[in-house]
């Protein structure tokens, strides 16, 4: 059943790398304006599914996506859909902060410029940095290299960079895994602040993080195949408090209570 408010929805999505299956038969809806967390052990395919939503998997020559993903009820992998256009609507924040080796200002302005932004660039840069709770820290050094910032600041710069092109959805691939606890906390607060305006999908290996920030949680698991590789699959997807307090599946319960692996 596709809910009427779903921005993204996956139907029986399987992803292959070369001939080996990485994730099988995932179906879920991402409701508009909510924060959805993907959790699960490593190798369960949660990042792989995330990267299908903005077609980053297109950049991996051997990757192949089966099934259907719709974005605002249009087939994301349809023949007339352009991956570049999709990515300007569905932004992404990565596991490790990856600011461009440019000034802080240019880091923000780059995406806007290529996407043909017609407004006032200075205002956009300031607005985006404020949105990412970074403005006060960097307003006097906008010409400094983005690489000169601390890890947590770099990651907020990357969020500001994603926000600047005003996407509808922001995908976050373990955005705090390379950060210290304090920086992590700031990013989590930021994610919650952004939630009203953006739909956010966040992959995390940190269950507390999922329970703190998300409205819904999807639990992925992996099983070994005969060939010795792992195949990920979706175990359970529900409201976050249900996943953490009264999950329907035994595996989910084991995982969220820490009895797993």
């Amino acid at each position: 059943m596709q809910s009427p408010t779903a921005v993204l929805s996956a139907r029986s999505v399987s992803v292959y790398y070369g001939s080996s299956l990485a994730v099988r038969q995932v179906s879920l809806d991402i409701p508009r304006g909510e924060i959805v967390a993907f959790i699960g052990p490593s190798g369960c395919g949660k990042s792989t599914i995330l990267r299908c939503f903005n077609r980053m998997n297109d950049l991996v020559a051997s990757a192949r996506v089966e099934g259907q993903i719709t974005y605002n009820d249009r087939d994301l992998y349809g023949p007339k859909v352009d991956a570049v256009a999709i990515r300007s609507r569905i932004g992404m924040v990565f596991q490790r902060p990856n600011p461009f080796p440019k000034s802080i200002y240019e880091n923000i302005a780059f995406g806007a410029r290529i996407n043909g932004y017609r407004g006032n660039m200075d205002e956009l840069v300031e607005g985006s940095l404020r949105r990412a709770a970074l403005w006060d820290e960097v307003k006097d050094k906008l010409r400094d290299s983005g690489l000169a910032l601390s890890g947590g600041q770099q990651q907020r710069l990357c969020i500001a960079r994603a926000v600047a092109i005003q996407p509808e959805v922001i995908l976050m691939d373990e955005p705090c895994s390379a950060l210290d606890p304090i920086s992590t906390l700031r990013i989590e607060e930021l994610i919650k602040e952004l939630s009203g305006d953006y739909t956010i999908v966040i992959v995390t290996h940190n269950m507390q993080q999922a329970s703190r920030v998300s409205d819904r949680t999807a639990f992925f698991n992996a099983e070994a195949t005969d060939a010795g590789s792992k195949v990920g699959y979706l175990v359970e997807y529900d409201r976050t408090e249900r996943i953490f307090h009264e999950p329907a599946q035994e595996a989910t319960r084991d995982y969220v209570t820490g009895r797993f692996g």
């Binding site: 352009d82 570049v84 256009a85 300007s88 806007a112 290529i114 996407n115 043909g116 932004y117 017609r118 407004g119 092109i165 005003q166």
Partner: peptide, 11 residues
């Protein structure tokens, strides 16, 4: 629209 991506020209 604030953004005018002009994809064809870019391609």
């Amino acid at each position: 629209m604030l953004f005018n991506p002009q994809l064809e020209r870019r391609y």
